[in-house]
């Protein structure tokens, strides 16, 4: 019986959302979201400001209450699947004066699996160091986090996600205000995660890079405008329906998609 259940859980997609509505006061922030993300995809969540991208992620992680709907992670509720979920929060939410080094922050990724009272082992430390190396920050491991540049801070967070060894990741704007080197490092990391069969959902701002970085795309503006493989979904028509007609940038981005095909 136990084995059967696990087998079913493995088959179900990493994330299914049915009928999700989140409302503050009288205004819905996102409504009637139906979404199913297949395994092993790099998914971008794209939409204008105030479209509810962060809200969607936070609802998936049970950080905010939902008005209606159902969210399943590998076919089960988030509470049961917590160990398989990784989260990279927005950078602004963190107190950078906190007395921790980059290595400490990365090692936090192992806390979830450790359980109460257990201390961080040598092995986890080594693992965290390895992850820092992978994002090119080995030399900065013992720096206090406020002494890292914005991009380095973001990479530290990603290294933590690596260490966490989850199966599905939620990342809230990892590309916001980072330098080119960091952007490259992040992209490489995402591809690496994908190679290992992980599913990654990324809130993303830069339309121009969507077709280049992500193979799946969710266009969101309070409700899902379109969701599917990027080259099918990322059309001029869909973008217009997500952002309205005025963005000329959209045309360029869509053209790039056409060219890349």
């Amino acid at each position: 019986m136990q084995i059967e259940e696990t087998a079913i859980a493995c088959k179900s997609p990493p994330l299914t959302i049915r009928d999700l509505t989140v409302a503050y006061h009288r205004k819905p922030v996102i409504w009637d979201i139906d979404l199913s993300i297949p395994e092993g995809k790099l998914v971008s969540i794209v939409g204008p400001n105030g479209a509810g991208k962060s809200t969607l992620i936070k609802a998936c992680l049970d950080l905010i209450p939902r008005t209606s709907g159902e969210i399943n992670i590998y076919g089960q509720s988030y509470k049961k699947m917590r160990n398989r979920v990784g989260y990279v929060p927005q950078r602004e939410t963190v107190d950078w004066d906190f007395p921790v080094s980059a290595l400490d922050v990365v090692a936090m990724g192992t806390y979830g699996k450790l359980g109460w009272f257990r201390r961080v082992s040598k092995r986890s430390k080594a693992l965290s160091m390895e992850a820092l190396e992978r994002v090119g920050l080995a030399d900065y491991a013992h720096r206090q986090i406020s002494q890292l540049s914005g991009g380095q801070q973001q990479r530290t967070f990603l290294a933590r996600a690596l260490v966490q060894d989850a199966d599905i990741y939620f990342m809230d704007e990892p590309f916001a205000a980072v330098d080119a080197a960091t952007e490259r490092a992040i992209v490489e990391l995402l591809k690496e995660l994908q190679k290992r069969g992980k599913t990654v959902l990324v809130v993303h701002h830069d339309l121009a890079t969507v077709p280049q970085y992500f193979d799946w795309t969710v266009l969101l503006n309070m409700r899902v405008v379109a969701a599917g493989p990027t080259d099918e979904v990322f059309t001029q028509e869909n973008l217009r329906r997500t952002y309205g007609g005025k963005l000329t940038l959209l045309t360029q981005a869509a053209n790039e998609v056409v060219q890349s095909r």
């Binding site: 204008p48 400001n49 105030g50 479209a51 509810g52 503006n221 309070m222 405008v225 217009r240 329906r241 997500t242 952002y243 309205g244 007609g245 005025k246 963005l247």
Partner: peptide
């Protein structure tokens, strides 16, 4: 859909 840029 029509006025996505000002709608939300």
């Amino acid at each position: 859909i029509e006025y996505a840029d000002v709608a939300t």
